[in-house]
Nucleic acid binder design. Sequence first.
DNA 1: CGCCGGATTGATCAGTTTCAAGGCATGTGG
DNA 2: CCACATGCCTTGAAACTGATCAATCCGGCG
Lengths: 231, 231
Amino acid sequence: MQPQTITTASAQVLSAPRAPVSPSADQFSIIASCSGAIATEFSYGKDEEIYGEGEPSEYVYQVIRGAVRTYKLLNDGRRQIGAFHLPGDVFGLDPGSAHRLTAEAISDTTVRLVKRRSLETAAGSDVRVAHNLWTMTAADLRHAEDHMLLLGRKTAIEKVATFLLEMDRRLAKTGMMALPMCRRDIGDYLGLTLETVSRALSQLNDQGVLVFSSARQIVLRNRQRLADMDA
Amino acid sequence: MQPQTITTASAQVLSAPRAPVSPSADQFSIIASCSGAIATEFSYGKDEEIYGEGEPSEYVYQVIRGAVRTYKLLNDGRRQIGAFHLPGDVFGLDPGSAHRLTAEAISDTTVRLVKRRSLETAAGSDVRVAHNLWTMTAADLRHAEDHMLLLGRKTAIEKVATFLLEMDRRLAKTGMMALPMCRRDIGDYLGLTLETVSRALSQLNDQGVLVFSSARQIVLRNRQRLADMDA
DNA sequence: CGCCGGATTGATCAGTTTCAAGGCATGTGG
DNA sequence: CCACATGCCTTGAAACTGATCAATCCGGCG
């Protein structure tokens, strides 16, 4: 099966419910099956919007392939990315009728989705579904709490160290990390400019804490040193 | 009924389940009554710890009188306050077995509490309780998402403007705002130093946007100007 | 009255941003 | 196959915002 040709203008329905899945996938599968709704696959091109802040939240999503950023904007375009969503992650579960952040594909991305409405219905009769919905929102809250500490109180180098450890944990399968996002995305996630991110990474490279094979292919050489500087 | 004498060393059990309650109180009352547990009152002295980060989460709390800060610390003492909890607010509802932030009374504070265990049990059989727990966690998440935008991307003056509007909304009954927290707390909430907070407030005072009756008694004179600068 | 914690204000410092230039890879068209 | 355009990243220098250090100030209270 060769990769889909994706147009940036529109997403396309796919078949094949099975997928390369990861830890929290369980929950999604559980709630999806309990909800009785068929989980559909859908693909988005690089930088394509999946949903916008303020739009009615019709679906809940799980990343199958690719990566997603969710963010908020200020009037003048300043952007804060709240989270990166990698394969296996669930996103778009905003209780309340509207999405509170915008979601965009970072690279060509395939997601599985179920109707939010059917989840709510299932939660009304099945306490396991209700419990899973709560647990997933709670996981998002935990991440947000940790990230507030980072944004409000960590220095640039500490922020980048924390970011690298997070990504290492979440996507390093082989010791090699293949970052899907650009420096600007990292900056907007960490509350920094892209230049400051680049300088911090260069500094860590100079110190031998990490090695680049390319700008986005990074090998961590000393996780302990990173953990120390992440405060 | 005169105010309790409170020792900082220890909290004291009170009686009287009724209380001066506010909007989200409904939810707490509902889950509390459904859980079958009696909501007990308890008081804490100024700066007394209610629970610590990492401690097993035994209770869920609702502020009756006073105010509470919940925060995280870095190794070296840098602090990020995640939220202020005012009368009517529920806090301490950390799904998972342990609290992820520390909670302290800002001033002498009375809370109502119910055993977390009994809520979980109730949620297992009553979907309304389960739904309320989810909704409350979701409200915390929404606040955290907004606050990440503030911490990562707003300037000092924008942060203070946002803070004033939030507090105005939450505790201004008479047009007068009586802030329960000191400048350092505000700084640790906004990711600023206390000096920067003080300077921003002085600047807003000079501009006629607000007036002090005392350092913590503030009247907003021009909410529109604040809303404009809050970006 | 004088102490004390909290708040304000001033002066200087430092970290991060901003502005700017150049490099390196990738892809496209001649 | 090469030339060039493009996007992304790195690096340098200057500017600026907010932090730090330090000196009062103010109000409440013993």
